[in-house]
């Protein structure tokens, strides 16, 4: 009994020490980032006037560009929507194949590595490659969004499928269900709410990320962000900012309503 108590106390102390080490390491990392970045906080203090002047030039917004900004925002919306749609199709296939509980390790392990690699490639880089491959316009943007978001969405789908209790599918197996029937009647009812939630979340992310696609010629409102800011037309940039804010808030509201309905 004495031995058990001693072991227990020693483990507890080890655990406390580990916690301190983790906190100290994170603190040291943040400190290194600050020092190595050579940040001059004095410049931040002096920037107040310049920010004021910048805001002064933004207001009142120039509403004459509203039709152009709304149309290009809708193009961004279409890019995000089509990119997400293609990504859903790819992710459903890859997600099922990457699920540990569905396929053997020689299939799901390489697929998971592939999805991790896709996630690691920045969207802007994918967009530049797509522009090089298929030319300017919304198409490279759609392809870039589809490729980039499949890395995350397929991983989410695979995890949702892996979370299905094995007994539920074993019961269908026992009843003589085919593989497809097991997916349709066993897996789908259990994972559908998760898949819809994950997909909506990814669509919201795609929409925000699609805003910058125009910077590299891949369509949408990004082109105007670049044009107005670089030519110092801050009043037009203000209209653009307001439209983007309204746009994103509307999508978030829609998302909120759908998620609440899924509970």
């Amino acid at each position: 009994m004495q031995t058990e108590q001693s072991t227990s106390v020693r483990r507890h102390r080890t655990s406390d020490w580990s916690g301190f080490m983790v906190s100290a390491s994170v603190g040291a990392l943040v400190l290194w980032a600050y020092v190595a970045s050579d940040i001059d906080t004095g410049r931040l203090a002096e920037s107040g006037g310049r920010i004021g002047a910048f805001l002064d030039r933004m207001f009142p917004p120039d509403w004459s560009v509203l039709p152009t900004v709304v149309e290009s925002s809708l193009e961004t919306f279409r890019i995000a929507l089509l990119g997400t749609a293609v990504s859903i199709v790819l992710s459903l296939i890859l997600g099922v194949l990457a699920a540990r509980t569905v396929t053997p390790p020689f299939i799901h392990l390489p697929l998971k590595w592939l999805l991790a690699a896709i996630r690691a490639i920045p969207l802007i880089l994918v967009a530049m490659l797509m522009v090089g491959a298929v030319g300017l316009g919304p198409l490279p943007g759609i392809l870039a969004i589809a490729f980039h978001s499949t890395g995350m969405l397929a991983k989410f789908y695979a995890e949702a499928i892996e979370g299905i209790p094995s007994g539920s599918l074993a019961a269908l197996d026992s009843a003589g269900a085919t593989w497809v029937q097991k997916l349709r009647f066993g897996a789908w009812p259990l994972v559908a709410p998760d898949l819809v939630r994950d997909t909506l979340f990814r669509f919201e992310l795609n929409l925000r990320e699609a805003l910058v696609l125009g910077l590299v010629g891949a369509g949408g409102i990004g082109f105007y962000i670049q044009t107005y800011v670089r030519t110092f037309q801050y009043d037009k940039a203000a209209t653009l900012t307001i439209v983007i804010i309204v746009f994103v808030v509307l999508i978030e509201l829609l998302n909120h309503v759908v998620r609440a309905a899924l509970k």
């Binding site: 209790p165 007994g167 074993a170 019961a171 197996d173 009843a175 009647f185 009812p189 259990l190 559908a192």
Partner: peptide, 17 residues
């Protein structure tokens, strides 16, 4: 398989159905 029915210990139902 269809000729043998199995009642599982933990029921093994599809919870949301």
């Amino acid at each position: 398989n269809a000729n043998i029915g199995f009642v599982f210990q933990e029921y093994a139902l599809i919870e949301r159905s």
